[in-house]
């Protein structure tokens, strides 16, 4: 496989052909913020936080789905990109009811961490305060739609790592929501194998182990990576 050389934020780096800009940057130690990206499942370029500027391309492209090319010149951290990222995060906070103080993931939440790291000090948009419900019908897990950012990680994990296909998306636009089976209570979803991978993949406090209280929900993402590595690369390496 041929190697490609490219420049990211002024730094010359090399990357394998077929690698994404995000992979190349991560390998070179250049951080690009992500939310819908999850190691182990395919990328969908949905959250738009990893957008980068590439010289010669008028559109901003997501680093997670854009493949490297020879001689690419990429900017990951311009003032314009930082502003757009802050706005995207503000939109997310205004979209549903993200109240950190009472959230199971407080302190371990990717959305919260992103807001800190991207300098989102406040939300300038009117909160929409939608009325979302809570599904605690499952024996082991709960789903709080108020905290969902619709990153689709749980759906992808459920379909492509576990292969159960329990989780899905229904509705569209701001009314989109994660459903289980044919929009039935999670506890009644026969296809669910109770593997818990969706809970492991959730970036916020939307999916949680029952019984956890404020700040208690910590997730072991390495497990997902471990499974995928074992399956695809036949490497049984645990950290």
């Amino acid at each position: 496989m041929a190697a490609k050389t490219l420049t990211i934020d002024g730094k010359q780096i090399s990357a394998e052909e077929g690698a994404t800009v995000l992979q190349a940057a991560t390998e070179a130690g250049i951080p690009i913020p992500t939310l819908c990206h999850l190691e182990g499942v395919y990328d969908m370029g949905a959250c738009r936080l990893c957008i980068v500027e590439i010289t010669g391309i008028p559109k901003l492209l997501p680093a997670c789905t854009t493949k490297v090319a020879e001689g690419m010149e990429i900017k990951t951290n311009s003032e314009r990109l930082r502003k757009y990222r802050r706005m995207i995060l503000e939109l997310l906070f205004a979209e549903r009811n993200h109240v950190c103080a009472v959230c199971v993931s407080n302190g371990h939440c990717e959305l919260q961490t992103l807001a800190y790291s991207q300098g989102m000090e406040h939300v300038r948009y009117d909160y929409t305060f939608p009325k979302w419900n809570l599904d605690t019908t499952h024996r082991l897990f709960g789903m709080d739609h108020n905290r969902c950012v619709l990153c689709n990680r749980c759906v992808r994990v459920c379909w492509h790592i576990e292969g159960a296909g329990t989780k899905n998306v229904s509705g569209r636009g701001a009314k989109s929501r994660i459903i289980t089976d044919l929009n039935m209570p999670w506890g009644d979803a026969d296809s669910c194998t109770e593997c818990g991978k969706c809970v492991m993949s959730c970036p916020t406090g939307a999916l949680f182990n029952k019984g956890s209280t404020v700040g208690e929900m910590e997730r072991d993402r390495d497990k997902l990576e471990f499974i995928v590595n074992a399956r695809e690369k036949k490497q049984w390496i645990a950290d």
Binding site: M44, G45, A46, C47, R48, I88, L91, L92, A94, E95, Y125, D126, T128, V149, L150, N152, V169, G171, R172, G173, A174, K175, S176
Partner: peptide, 21 residues
């Protein structure tokens, strides 16, 4: 556009809601 946004990406899904508001 707000009604017809598929909801996949955040700028369109949440941005159209705020712009409409």
């Amino acid at each position: 556009c707000m009604d017809e946004s598929c909801g996949k990406c955040i700028p369109c899904r949440a941005g159209t809601v705020q712009m409409h508001h």
